[in-house]
Design a protein around this nucleic acid. Structure first.
Lengths: 344, 344
DNA sequence: TTTAGCACTCAACCAACTAGAGTGCTAACG
DNA sequence: CGTTAGCACTCTAGTTGGTTGAGTGCTAAA
C-alpha cells in the first residue's frame, strides 16, 4: 500500500501532468502547496513509485509521468470529482424542454453539450430499437404493388418500411395480414417478431395466403431487422487539440474508430454498468491501438432499466475529475427527464 | 492563349504533380513520352507559364507546381475523364438492388462506394424532405394525452412526430382534426403545410376546437418543420493520407467543415448544377480556409428534377480525371435507378 | 528556334556543440 | 533515522555550420 506521502506525490504528479502534458520534475512537485517536502525527498519517493509501477520516465533525464496503473490509482482513490455549477445543469435541463418531440434530437444535443463542456470527443448511444415492444402496425398503400408499413413501439418510436407486394398479391390481402399481425404481436419485442410469427402463426397465416413463398417474401420485408441503434459523436476534431495525438498515424486509427459504423465503440458503450460512471484507461479498453486513450462511460436509464449510454473519449492524460463529475450529473439527469418524458 | 507546346507542358506538370505531390522539375517533364523537348526548352516555357499565372514555385530552386488557375485550365481543357470499367458500374447497380426498402441506406452506400473507389472523402445529400408533398397523415394514440403523428409523403417517405395534447383536448378531437387535414392538405409540399392551414383553413378549424390557442399549440407540433436533409459523409479520414494535410491546423479546420451540422457544405452541394459534373478549385469554394481543397459535385435527379447531390472532397492536387469520370457515371446511374425505384 | 553548358540558389540532411532540466547518489543535518 | 543540500552525470532539444543535390536562369553555340 502507498504511504500518505506517496499518495500526495502521485496526486500532484497526475494533476500537474494532466494540466501541462509535460513530464513532471521533482522540483515542481515539491513547490506545490499541498506538498511540503524538498525536491530530494520527492525524488526518492518518485523512484519508489516508479519501481511499484505507478510512474514512468520517458527517458533518464526527464521528469516522471503517470503510468496506466498510476492513472488507475488516481481515478480510484485520489481525485475528487468536480462539482458542476447551476449553469451547466441548467443547460442539461433545457435539452429536454426545447425539443420534446424527438428523443433522438435530445440525445444528439446531449452529445454536443458533453463535448462542449469537456472539450473532448463525446459518444452517445441511443435506445436499442430492437428491445422496444410492438405497439401498433399501420399500413399505408402507395401504389398497387407497394405500401409503407409503419411500426410503432411502446416508447412511441416509429419505424417505416417500404414493402413491395409479391406478384399476384393484392393490397387487401396484405391489409388483412397486417390486421392479424396487429392482434397477435402486441407487446412482442421487435427483435423477436419474426421468430414468433414463424413459431406460433405459421399455420394460421397459410389460411390467408395460398402461396407460402409469397407470404415469406412479404413478411421478410415487413419485419426486416431494424437498424442498429445509432451512435452520435460530437467534437471529433477536439482530439486533434491534444498534443499526444500530433502523430498522424495514431490520429488516423483513432478517427477511424469514431468514423461511424464501428462496432467496437458500440460494444464498449453497451458494456457500461447500469449505474455510476466507469473509467476505462489505456489498454483496459480492449481495442487495438487504444493505448493512450481513456474512455469514460455512464449509462442512462428509463424506469431504472438501462437503455443507452454516454461516453467521453480522450487521452489517458484526461481531466478525469472534471469529466467524471459532469458525466455523473448528466447521466442521472437524463434518466430523470427521460422517465418524466415517457410518463406524459 | 496557350500554344500547343505550353498546353502539353502544363498537362505533364499537372499529371506528374497529382501523382507525386512533389514539385516538378524541367528534367522530368522533358523525359515524359508525350513531350519531346529538352529540359532547357521546357524551362523557358515554364518561366512563361509562371508569368501567366498557371504555375508557381515554392522556392527558387525547386520545381514548379500548378497554381489554382493552372488546375482550372487543366480541368477545363486538358484532362480526359477516366472511363470506368464494368466492375465499378456493377457495384453501383447493386446499391439499389440490395436494399430497396430504404432510399436513405442506398444513399449512404453510395457515399461509401464513392469514397472507396476514389480514396477521397465523399459527401452525399439526400432528397429534401421539405419539397415532398403530403400524401397521408396518420395518427396513432399513445396515451390519453399524447399520440404519434405520421406523415407520409408522395415519395413514400415517412416522418413521425410525437404530439402532446393540450390540456382539456381529447384524442377524438384530434382525430377529427387529422381527418380534416388529411382531406384538405393532400399534395401540398411539407414546407407549405403550416402556411396553407393558416391561410385557408383557419376559420373552418375553429369549428372543431373551441379554444384557438390549444389548436395552434397542437398544429405547431403536428406540422413542425421537418429536419434538414441529412448529409452522409464517408472516408473522412482519407484526408489524413494526403501529404498536404500533414499540417494539423489545416487538418482541423477541414475536419470541422465535415463534422456534420455544417451548413456551408450543404449549401455547396445544393448549389450544384442540375446536370453535369462541376469542379470547384481552391478559393472558388467560398469558404474560409478552403484553399488547397477541391470539391467535385454532381447532382442526381428524379423525373429530371434535381433532388440531391454527390460530392467528393480532396486536395487541389486531386485526381480530377478519375473522379470526374466516376461522378459522371454514378450521378447518371443513380438518377436512373431512382426513377425506376419510384415507378414501381 | 532549340539545345548544351555552367554558375547560382536554396531546402534538406547531417554532425557537432551547447544549454538546461532533471536525475541519482552521497554526505551532512536535526 | 528520516530529511535535505550539493554535485556529478545523463539525456533531449535547439542551434550552428557545412555539404549535397535538385533545379533554375542565362548565355552561347548548333
Amino acid at each position: 500500500m502507498l504511504t500518505e506521502r506517496q499518495k500526495r506525490i502521485l496526486w500532484a504528479i497526475c494533476e500537474d501532468y494532466i494540466e501541462s502534458a509535460e513530464p513532471v520534475g521533482s522540483r515542481s512537485v515539491s513547490k506545490k502547496d499541498d506538498v511540503g517536502f524538498s525536491a530530494a525527498t520527492v525524488r526518492n519517493e518518485m523512484a519508489d513509485l516508479e519501481e511499484m509501477g505507478f510512474l514512468e520516465q520517458p527517458h533518464t533525464s526527464a521528469g516522471r509521468i503517470p503510468s496506466q496503473q498510476g492513472y488507475r490509482f488516481y481515478v480510484d482513490h485520489l481525485l475528487t470529482p468536480q462539482i458542476w455549477g447551476d449553469e451547466e445543469i441548467h443547460a442539461i435541463h433545457n435539452l429536454f424542454q426545447k425539443d420534446t418531440t424527438h428523443i433522438e434530437q435530445a440525445i444528439e444535443h446531449t452529445s454536443e453539450l458533453l463535448s462542449q463542456l469537456t472539450n473532448y470527443t463525446s459518444v452517445v448511444i441511443g435506445p436499442k430499437l430492437q428491445d422496444h415492444r410492438l405497439r401498433h402496425l399501420q399500413m399505408i398503400p402507395l401504389t398497387e404493388h407497394s405500401a409503407v408499413l409503419i411500426i410503432v413501439t411502446d416508447l412511441g418510436h416509429v419505424n417505416q418500411q417500404r414493402v413491395l407486394l409479391p406478384e399476384g398479391m393484392s393490397i387487401s390481402v396484405m391489409e388483412r395480414l397486417v390486421n392479424l399481425l396487429n392482434k397477435r404481436l402486441q407487446g412482442i419485442s421487435l427483435s423477436k417478431l419474426r421468430l414468433v410469427v414463424e413459431r406460433d402463426l405459421a399455420d394460421e397465416l397459410t389460411r390467408y395466403v395460398a402461396e407460402y413463398g409469397s407470404m415469406v417474401f412479404l413478411l421478410d420485408q415487413m419485419l426486416a431487422p431494424q437498424p442498429e441503434s445509432r451512435i452520435y459523436t460530437s467534437g471529433t476534431t477536439k482530439m486533434l487539440d491534444q498534443p499526444e495525438f500530433r502523430d498522424l498515424h495514431k490520429m488516423k486509427s483513432l478517427l477511424d474508430l469514431l468514423d461511424g459504423k464501428n462496432q467496437s465503440i458500440i460494444q464498449l458503450l453497451n458494456s457500461s454498468p447500469s449505474s455510476g460512471v466507469q473509467v476505462k484507461i489505456g489498454n483496459e479498453i480492449s481495442i487495438e491501438g487504444a493505448n493512450h486513450i481513456s474512455f469514460i462511460i455512464a449509462s442512462f436509464s428509463l424506469d431504472s432499466e438501462s437503455i443507452g449510454a454516454i461516453g467521453v473519449l480522450g487521452p489517458t492524460r484526461m481531466e478525469y475529475a472534471k469529466v467524471i463529475g459532469l458525466m455523473d450529473v448528466i447521466s442521472k439527469d437524463i434518466s430523470k427527464r427521460l422517465t418524466e418524458f415517457y410518463e406524459k
